[in-house]
Amino acid sequence: MLSTGALRAHLLAARLAGTVATSREESLRSYRAFAARDPRVTLGLDPEWVWGERELIALMADKCGVSGDPEHVAGPDVIDPERTLSALDAFAERLGEAAARRAPVLMGTGHPHRLLGFYAGLADALSAAGCLVLTPAQGRCIDITTRFGVRTYNLEYAQGVALMRKPGVHGPGSGTGAHTHSPLPVRVALDGAIDAGGPLPELVVGDHGWVCGAGQLGIEAIGLADTDDPALFVGEAEGQVSVAVPLDDAVRSDYYRPLTRYVLNRACLSQ
């Protein structure tokens, strides 16, 4: 069993919290873009409240522990590990509730190179607890606007977790998938579930557009977010997102394994 103290030490040592790789400059650029309602940063969320840069800085200081000083404009960002631990506990509680009622669940990530293993461990435990881990719209093509123009990807599933891959790239030896912030994949997956006459998820677990896109549609959503992803924390503040866990979402994939163990233990899903 991984104790809270041991996980706190791991968060700091792996730079999942504490001083993180995401820079203050990156975060402020995202806050300005969110304030301008740039869809690349809102991630499918349609905020109800007015969010200027100063309001976002104050929110992120409260939710993540970043500096609340608008004059602080350079250097590394900081995530308070106590806030991460508290959010992980809430995240685990939601998973445990879904498992207790054997709810259908959809898992999806826009960070497959880093976070696939984290979500796959959760998917496996939820499936063992009797939850239906959904895989709708398998293979569906999706056109996503990127900074390089429109790119076509396929919606695929690896170990029960949805991700985007380039067409023609398949199988476990083909790499993990593409990095994307788009809410289109979750919308396509939900449309696929409806078209197939199957159940819709009662809980969506993931990051980026998977969480915000689902939450905007009224589906309970929980996920992970870095300091330059304000949309999830705005969604949490406004009630569209149930839990947003602040941490660096781009460290080595094996650094997330202790988080999987911790969450499953707290959710009473350890196998």
Rank of each mutant, 00 (worst) to 15 (best):
A36Q: 12
A231M: 09
D89E: 14
Y157Q: 11
V251K: 07
L7E: 06
T22S: 02
G96H: 07
E55Q: 10
I194H: 03
Y255N: 02
D77P: 01
R24V: 15
F34N: 01
F34G: 02
T109I: 10
E26M: 14
G239C: 03
G18H: 09
H179A: 09
V211E: 00
L132F: 04
G149I: 12
I222R: 05
F233C: 03
S270G: 00
Q216D: 02
L163H: 13
S86W: 06
Y262A: 03
V205E: 03
D46P: 00
R151Y: 00
L59V: 07
L95N: 04
P47Q: 05
G139A: 13
L132D: 12
G177W: 09
L259F: 06
V133E: 00
E236K: 01
R114G: 00
R15L: 00
A13V: 10
A189N: 06
D124V: 13
L264I: 04
Y31P: 04
R261I: 11
L247G: 09
L43V: 03
V50Y: 01
L247V: 11
I219P: 01
E156T: 14
L190P: 05
N154E: 15
Y255H: 15
E156H: 11
Y119M: 12
R94F: 01
N265M: 05
Q271N: 10
L203E: 07
A244Y: 06
T19K: 13
L106P: 00
E220L: 04
S23Q: 09
V73R: 14
S86N: 05
L95R: 01
P70L: 00
G175Q: 11
F91M: 05
L12A: 07
A123Q: 07
H179I: 14
G168M: 03
G160V: 12
T42K: 02
D249V: 14
A13S: 15
T19E: 15
P112T: 09
A21T: 13
G5L: 09
R101D: 05
G198A: 08
S3C: 00
G96M: 05
P185D: 11
C212S: 11
V41S: 00
L12T: 13
E25H: 10
F148T: 11
P201Y: 07
Y119C: 07
C212A: 14
D143H: 13
R94A: 14
L184K: 15
V169D: 00
R37P: 03
